[in-house]
Amino acid sequence: MAAIRDSALTRAFDNDWIGPGLVSLIAVVAISMAQPAFLSSFNIFVLMSAISVNMVIALGQLVIIGLGQMNLALGSIGGLVAISFVGVIERYGVPVPLALAFALGIGIAAGMSSGYIIARTMISAFIITLAGLQIFKGINLGITEAQPFYGVPEAVKTFGQASVIGPLPWLMVPMMICAFAMWYVFNRMRIGRHILAMGSNPHAAELSGIDPKATIIWAHAISGLLAAIAGLMLVARLQIGQPTIGDDWLISSFAAPVIGGAVLTGGRVSVAGTFFGVVIIAIITQGLVMFNIDPFVVQIVLGALILWAVAVNRLREVRIARVQARGAGA
């Protein structure tokens, strides 16, 4: 356990975020010199709204990455939660707090059921969440027939468009709560340590008395909850219960944690690094629009960025000379 703490935790929070943090800082300075409007208050508001939602999405994937698994169903859970939330309000007039609890419950239940099946059968998470992706998305389409729900309550709409102070959107509040909570989970709580230990070395973790099934179920439940929160934040931001919410989460949900230094085989995650990963992606997306660059170049840049991050992570690993005995897989 001591070794795991050393390698996974201390290192993760000591230096994983420095690289992406520096890159974010340089990007902000460079772009704002070329385009002063970048630092206008409305732009900061827009940028922070995008970052807030994408950060919660990335955190949802980060938990599962820490476990050494992947959650392909993240986006479809978010989408199902979003339409369920607006749906019960519009169709059945359910009061907002109740609808909120109901929607979050769906997220947790969806995540838990994936987790339960994975833990019980030990079938790879990839396949189970791939099936989950189709099932949740299918239910979503079956209910909505791909038509959006418009009945978003005014309070929710306001939440998505109002600012706390100055250019900082209200959407930052749930993001910061989630980010802090996840940092706390990984650093201070037993369940977080268990997740990382399972990700580092499942056999050693089991030998040291960790219950693998409970850990897997917990991790997926947390992931489902975060997907649900992100889905609700998007409802507030888009002002509409869109069935397509979540369709495009997959790539960025992996890109941000990886740019932030997470290792896909598990055991090593960085909440701060992930945050800067999200910031970098947001700045690039916005920068390319600002400078009127071909939208398809965005794809190429994002792909190249992932490879670059992988290379940097790899180099650092080699330098630390802590070559992991575990085959990283083909």
Binding site: M70, I251, F254, A255, V258, L264, T265, D294, F296, V297, V298, Q299, I300, L302, G303, A304, I306, L307, V310, A311, R314, A328, G329, A330
Partner: peptide
């Protein structure tokens, strides 16, 4: 080649190459 040289899981490598291949083709 990239997977073997980097030792990174093919999921992440092909996630990146999917964007790059398709992006270059469309471009």
């Amino acid at each position: 080649f990239t997977v073997v040289m980097s030792g990174v899981h093919s999921f992440i490598i092909t996630l990146a190459s999917m964007s790059i291949f398709f992006g270059v083709m469309i471009f």
